[in-house]
Write a protein that binds this DNA or RNA. Structure first.
Lengths: 379, 379
DNA sequence: CTGAAAGCGCTTACAG
DNA sequence: CTGAAAGCGCTTACAG
């Protein structure tokens, strides 16, 4: 931790000093506007002949200050174009008005939507989002956490990179700041830090619902496509699929379980192989909507018609499945709402720091399309 | 502006005061770890019997401090788990280590990738990203800018909401902080603020290249699909299409120009109508990859085979077109690189505040697929 | 090479 | 109802 601090402090020396100290000598021919020292409370106070304290009280809407004085000060604030320096106020009050949000893959629209939800909810409460992207690297995650924590966030929302563990995270943030884990768990569970809140999706139940839906339509040869085995959500979703199959007395064939990166590209690429491995397949549960969409394109390219001769369902992590193409019956995870929920959880933690950790598993909703097709090949 | 400040100041009173002042009375049975007052330079200084100044010098890597002292201090820093308070340092030094990033639609993967690029490049320089989402609302954009500017960012990167104008933005940020406009221009050009940097994509040339590519393959009846007329990039892209068509001596039919929201849903929905309006169409330039992908699905659903009997090209804003389905010849805009570029531009502005504004139009690259098809219906 | 002191822009008891 | 003063956690000339 020492080294981290050191490194970032040294980085600070690279940051140019914005020299706003000397009032600008206005050169009339210069087309660029002069850089002025930002106006402070003291400037405003002097401008209208009251004390800094009074100006501060006006700003904070205190009832202690008289009507006339208030009007005077407000006019002066507007006139000088005063901008509140929240960093200074936070320092003095020992408060924070920011929350750090560390995302392992912002390029993934699921997490982008999540981030938008977090920011939206925080903004409504007067908090600001400190963004950090780890790009699925635990090393970068540590750096980013270390850097953000120096800005004194009141809390951290972390969607951990694959493989990041409790000790790493802990030593990066120092154990003072409340943390909320989103979507994934950390490795190396350390029970003494079980006070971290958690928010995740009910992946297992969702996959079970989707599989049961297909079984209910009469499908028997159902594939589970996409996702990589090291990801927690993958294991949970696959388990839900297996649960439903086993409960129906079916043994999924090994070739029905196909791992792939959770992308359209891979979904599309797997279609031919899957249809060759078992031409009798009539349905698939897809790991997420990206895989499902790619798989649908792959089906088309192989002369199949999803929704007519092949049933596809999948998790609608990203919102892609809400595409108006009918075949997909989807499992909705509503990432933006999850973002708002995460924001509310971490803010709640600030008011009640000593409450036991909350572990929320958000429900997943099956949205059935009319066109969900029955199998062409009876079992 | 006054009212804005006021509102946010009042919001501040909602922010709970993290009372870290009194050292925790450790209750041994409590399972939650004690909240300690964060350790400061003074604590460390006292802990190893040097002055605060010395500790500060050690942190900042100054050569002025002796080897032995340095080692002593470093040990103490590690022992106490010191976390640098960058806000305090920034206050004292009158510097800033953050950049505000305001995005009108983070759910759009193009802007999510852009944001990731910004954050990546900023992180490498020791800066932190203050995120704000305007959700395509100019009112929220003003709020968000007002809130972020109170945190004293060294610069602002703004991807403006549709319809936001110079005066609004200016009065929200106060005219002191350097600003970079990404992707869109503001309405109500005010020449005195022409010092704002701009970064956008060469939409017109890109669309022209794509159209010329199709013309070169022999296509004559080419549609331009998707996008909404009020968006600047739409008008630029459509203009590029029109330029190429006119240069080839062709007059695009009115029914070839179809506006729609830039989504897969709309792209898919427009396919049938477009094929009915002119069954002789052999190719389309799509506004972006979302539209193109939806349109491809729509073609399949209408019994056409993109890449075989219909040529599709489009802007690959989002990276969707890099889907391994062959039909799309794409125009790459590389949003993540644009993000890095924006970060570099705004950081450069800090070193050279009085340089004239830079207006960069990033090139767009045509990536031709082998499978680009020739028209089935000769002109 | 190290320490005492002033100050960044705010807030907040405490007098008056 | 208003003002003088202390202090949040740092940095930085300036002495020594």
């Amino acid at each position: 931790m020492l080294h981290r601090s050191m490194r970032f402090c040294e980085l600070a020396t690279m940051i140019p000093k914005l020299d706003r100290s000397k009032p600008c000598e206005k050169v009339s021919m210069s087309p660029t506007p002069p850089i002025r020292r930002p106006v402070t409370l003291a400037d405003v106070a002097q401008g209208c002949g009251v004390s800094r304290a009074t100006v501060s009280l006006v700003l904070r809407g205190s009832p202690l200050v008289g009507k006339a004085t208030r009007a005077l000060v407000e006019a002066e604030l507007a006139k000088q174009g005063y901008v509140y320096n929240r960093a200074a106020a936070n320092l003095r009050r020992r408060t924070s008005s920011s929350i750090a949000l560390v995302i392992h893959d912002l390029g993934n629209p699921f997490f982008a939507e999540f981030a938008a939800g977090v920011d939206e909810a925080l903004g409504e409460t007067g908090f600001v989002t400190l963004l950090g992207c780890s790009n699925e690297s635990t090393a970068r995650e540590c750096q980013v956490l270390g850097s953000l924590v120096e800005h004194g966030p009141a809390g951290i929302i972390l969607s951990p990179a694959e493989g990041s563990d409790t000790q790493q995270v802990l030593s990066a943030i120092g154990g003072q700041t409340p943390l909320l884990l989103f979507n994934r768990d950390l490795e190396g569970a350390a029970p003494e830090y079980a006070h971290w809140d958690r928010l995740s999706m009910d992946n297992q139940r969702g996959a079970r619902l989707a599989t049961e839906h297909l079984l209910g339509l009469g499908h028997r040869r159902i594939a589970f496509l996409g996702g990589l085995h090291y990801a927690t959500p993958f294991r949970q979703r696959r388990q839900g699929y297996l649960d439903a199959m086993h409960a129906a007395g079916l043994s999924p064939q090994p070739e029905w379980l196909v791992e792939s990166a959770p992308t359209r590209q891979e979904g599309a690429r797997r279609a031919s192989a899957l249809l060759q491995a078992d031409p009798q397949l009539t349905a698939a549960v897809c790991y997420n909507d990206a895989v499902a969409l790619g798989f649908m394109l792959g089906l088309y390219a192989n002369g199949r018609r999803p929704g007519h001769d092949f049933a596809v369902t999948g998790f609608d992590d990203i919102g892609e499945a809400s595409l108006s193409m009918p075949p997909l019956t989807t499992l909705s995870t509503r990432p933006r709402e999850r973002g708002r929920q995460a924001a509310e959880m971490i803010l709640a933690r600030l008011h009640t720091p000593h409450t036991p950790a909350r572990r929320i598993v958000a429900p997943v909703e099956l949205q059935v399309r009319e066109s969900s097709c029955r199998p062409l090949f009876p079992a």
